[in-house]
Design a protein around this nucleic acid. Structure first.
Lengths: 334, 334
DNA sequence: ACTACCCGCGAAACCGCTTTCACGGAATAA
DNA sequence: TTATTCCGTGAAAGCGGTTTCGCGGGTAGT
């Protein structure tokens, strides 16, 4: 589409009385242009209301100004407000740096899927991944030199820049809090154990036990999948296997809510008989009754960190993984 | 970045023994190429693992293959799972049609903001708007011939293609349901009245009253803003001004939850003393206790509809506004 | 004063694909 | 058979920037 005729370098060059090369230099911050001529160019740009054509620029320079945000999953993940929030954080930081966010919600399959092709085809200057189930594609892209950032911790230890919440620390303090409140038998409902976050939270839970000298029995460790339903199912099971349970740490708020629903349905009061802690500090943690004690992670900051890490890479700056701190928010449930 | 040398038309043309023009024709579905040569080209493409450079293609053709999704607001809106879900629906449809989604989360100010510039600069083939507070920019862009779709109903009646949920109908049936359950005094807590959706839901509420021959008093109409807090605040106020209130229709689930929290805090049981209906059928509607009777809207479908409408426009097909039906989901709260 | 550099700047090639234009030959019309 | 149209096709001109290359003049070195 060619809505309105926009001026090109040719016009700018003519009205400023310089060559197109000089226009390009000025517009790209090349210092070597004489201030006077640079000024003339700027005035021409201003006067003509010139805006650079990013597509032409991209073709010539090889830089598209586009960063892909890849969500490795189907629709269900994105309906989780969590990712929407992260994305908006990313988007804002990129926008401030003159870059744009291309959103790709799709199962990131093998190396030959559509997403893979798109990323490999040089149409984006970098890619930020969410929710990785596997590192193959990422490692492959890294070899090709595409700047990458992973939100969450990668599975392999290939040194790919990533940002993450301190899952371990958050889970540790949540579990510790339950113990400090007097809980003797604290169970965990993990998230999808295929994700590193779920594993780290489990590790935090285990570490807290280790320190207290009492390792939890296997049956207190329930493998959930972050869904409300799995929270319910595992709480149900726990009530049967461990009638004397008095603490549950759920790897996210939704499962915590599910657990509470079941507990109260079974006549156990929360928190007086069973204490429950969640993770995320999602909206529901505040609005539910009893309101949920949970581990807060700063989701917007996570997105912003991912964006910043990408910018740093593109600028060739130094960078290293960013781990964001968590905060235990104590409410009614524990 | 130039990760790996990718073949160009020049290479394809040579190995297939045809001209670049022919390669282009084949790759763009021009029927006028002789089947044999077309076949040769396809084989060469296959053999060389060729992928078209979209940037070069965009420059030459003027079509970028990018559709902007503009969320007219700051971060807070996107943290609402609603928009994340809509976006993923859009994204999927576009992707199926070889287009990509460029996400822009920013206050869409005047005609000269960053977003405005980007959209006007021809770097996207179309734009889909969410949450419009004003139609000025949209009308401006429309004049420039940029294909647009609005998610939600536009304020002005300029014939811009839009998709929306049947807010009126949904609110009407929610209110009617409350009346049918025996409620004599039904209040409404509206959403941000600056949005058309909030207005339409109010209209549905009013229409239900009109039909029953009993117009609600002004003080039963509370102007909220879709937040949990505003739900609480208005419920509080209603309890004071109308102690005998027995029904509340909230314009979204979050406010409904807020209202229920206050009602129960004040010793009114839901639904036996006060019935409450929400709107959206968000996750919390299912997980809360009492679970929420609400008006379900199909959010993913909304996004998909917006995407489809955009595709239709780009293809020059006929299209008209799409209004998606709602469904009253009866749970415990009413 | 003469050669050696350096610097600012314009000419022109180039990025990879699209599209117009015109040509040669086959098909159709006269 | 000759004139006319149609068709498939390639050459080449863009699309609008970026970047290399080299020139001319000024500065510095000896």
């Amino acid at each position: 589409m060619a809505p309105l005729l926009r001026p090109t370098y040719a016009v700018i060059a003519k009205t400023a009385g310089v060559s197109e090369a000089t226009v390009s230099r000025v517009l790209n911050g090349d210092e070597s242009v004489h201030p006077d001529r640079a000024q003339r160019v700027r005035e021409a740009v201003e006067e003509l209301g010139y805006k650079k054509n990013r597509v032409a620029s991209a073709l010539a320079s090889g830089r598209t100004g586009l960063i892909a945000v890849v969500i490795d999953d189907d629709l269900s993940v994105f309906s989780d407000p969590f990712w929407g929030t992260v994305t908006s954080g990313v988007s804002r930081v990129l926008q401030e740096n003159g870059l744009h966010t291309v959103l790709m919600v799709a199962p990131v399959g093998a190396l030959d899927g559509g997403v893979a092709h798109y990323l490999k085809s040089g149409e984006v200057d970098g890619a930020i991944f969410f929710v990785l189930h596997s590192d193959i594609l990422v490692n492959h892209l890294k070899k090709q030199g595409l700047p990458l950032v992973i939100t969450g911790t990668p599975h392999s230890n290939a040194d790919i820049p990533f940002v993450d919440t301190d899952n371990f620390g958050g889970a540790y303090s949540a579990t510790k809090h339950l113990m400090n409140q007097g809980c003797k038998k604290v169970a965990i409902i993990t998230g999808d154990i295929g994700t590193t976050a779920a594993k780290q939270r489990l590790d935090g839970y285990l570490q807290a036990h280790r320190e207290s000298g009492s390792l939890p029995s296997k049956s207190l460790i329930c493998e959930g999948d972050y869904s409300f339903e799995s929270g319910k199912a595992h709480a149900q099971k726990l009530l049967e296997t461990h009638p004397d349970i008095d603490g549950i740490f759920a790897s996210n708020d939704l499962m915590a809510m599910g657990a509470i629903t079941v507990l109260e349905g079974a006549g156990r009061s929360v928190p007086s008989q069973v204490r429950v802690v969640g993770f995320d500090d999602a909206l529901i943690a505040q609005t539910s009754r009893p309101s949920l004690t949970t581990v807060r992670q700063d989701v917007v900051a996570l997105g912003e960190a991912a964006g910043s890490l990408m910018i740093a890479q593109l600028n060739g700056q130094d960078f290293e993984p960013i781990i964001l701190p968590t905060e235990l928010v104590i409410r009614e449930s524990a």
